[in-house]
Write a protein that binds this DNA or RNA. Structure first.
Lengths: 211, 211
DNA sequence: GCACAAGTTGGGAGTGTTCTCAACTTCGCC
DNA sequence: GGCGAAGTTGAGAACACTCCCAACTTGTGC
């Protein structure tokens, strides 16, 4: 589906694409804070053009990562198609964390906004599928009953930091961190938790405020 | 123990203290990236004076947080004095995480450098005590055997991010995150881990390179 | 109380980034 | 092939921060 209003003029569309492509690469390699000037230079256009298409850095970030929502939905679908509920949950988290590990920009994004970060597409859809995965694991009795969807952001945040710190030295070590956390999520591991889970609205507030 | 060389002139010492105090407060409230100018202004001295005492931001950070090593040692001692090995480990991690939660600057520091961040005092000492806590938990059979000292940085990093994101909305929710992780650390929770632990030298490299 | 080393000052040069805008170029339709 | 709208340019204003230094002030030992 084309984005909106008037269709862009051909050269404008081309420049827009060049910008998004350049940004995608630079974000992936060096994180979300690369200078906009450099993105423009890499794309071969002037900074004014960049600003013309994307008034703020966030607009560019959204454009670059708008595909991720769909990817996460695909991962969720595959997770739900696995016969074993626990494997489904593990598969989901592993694949999502792989996305983080593969792209420093996405990792930044996730660590600032949590999973399902992009506004494009239907954000609720991603959450709906995720909660289906969790519900299924609860029903099968493999996921500890006190563990909620909202607790999954702890995984996301934790892995984000681990990836950030370790990629240079041991790019795959986040898998160990994830496995350790997952062992704490299994039903038999459960011991009483000291704090109630984040409520959905609290999580929303965090996402919104914690830019 | 006084720091070094010539004892500072009285007014210089006073200014130095004012700077450290101002920095401590601003770091705690707003993280490690507050402008140096603002610290100088808050302390009531000029930026030149700040620069005179602390040629780089890191020097100031070190001065502000030099006490933390001793605090962590005290926490370790108390942890070791508890009769139950598991309680000792939990106590240690909880107290250290409380330090993080109480001070945004320290949280930044920890998330950039891991626990035992400050060079002042004997950094090896902190690690030695920590490894004693872990060893004891291993011997008692309560900590899963494949869990190493190096794995504890995952706790640190993860909590750092959680604290950062959630303090505004639910300042104590990191305790839930910690409890979940700890349940994964218990001996009966153990399932095979996919990656070998970080080696001590790898961890060192990460600390050094990961600014 | 004097002299001079020690310490302080505050403005300014240097750097790196975002954002703007008036002048210019290009596209696509007639 | 030419016109107007759409799009682009690139230099520079604005900002925020670090670092420096020549002129000044203050503390301390004599």
């Amino acid at each position: 589906m084309p984005t909106s209003a008037r269709p862009l003029r051909r050269d404008a569309q081309r420049n827009r694409d060049l910008l998004v492509t350049a940004a995608r690469e630079l974000f992936a390699a060096r994180g979300l804070d690369v200078p906009l000037d450099e993105i423009a230079r890499t794309a071969g256009v002037s900074s004014g053009t960049l600003y013309n298409h994307f008034p703020s850095r966030d607009d560019l970030v959204d454009a670059v990562f708008s595909d991720r929502t769909a990817t996460v939905v695909r991962i969720s679908e595959h997770a739900l198609s696995l016969p074993d509920a626990w494997s489904g949950l593990v598969h989901f988290l592993e694949r999502v964390c792989e996305l983080q590990a593969a792209d420093r920009g996405y990792n930044d994004l996730v660590s600032r906004r949590g999973p399902q970060p992009t506004p494009a597409g239907d954000p609720a859809l991603g959450y709906a599928m995720m909660s289906r995965i969790i519900e299924r694991a609860h029903e099968a009795g493999v996921l500890r009953p006190d563990c909620t969807l909202e607790d999954m952001v702890f995984v996301t945040w934790g892995i984000a930091r681990t990836v950030e710190a370790t990629t240079a030295v041991r790019p795959e070590v986040w898998r160990r961190h994830l496995a350790l956390i997952l062992d704490g999520f299994r039903a038999p591991a459960a011991h009483p938790l000291p704090e109630p889970p984040l409520r959905p609205d609290e999580l929303m507030r965090i996402m919104r405020e914690f830019c």
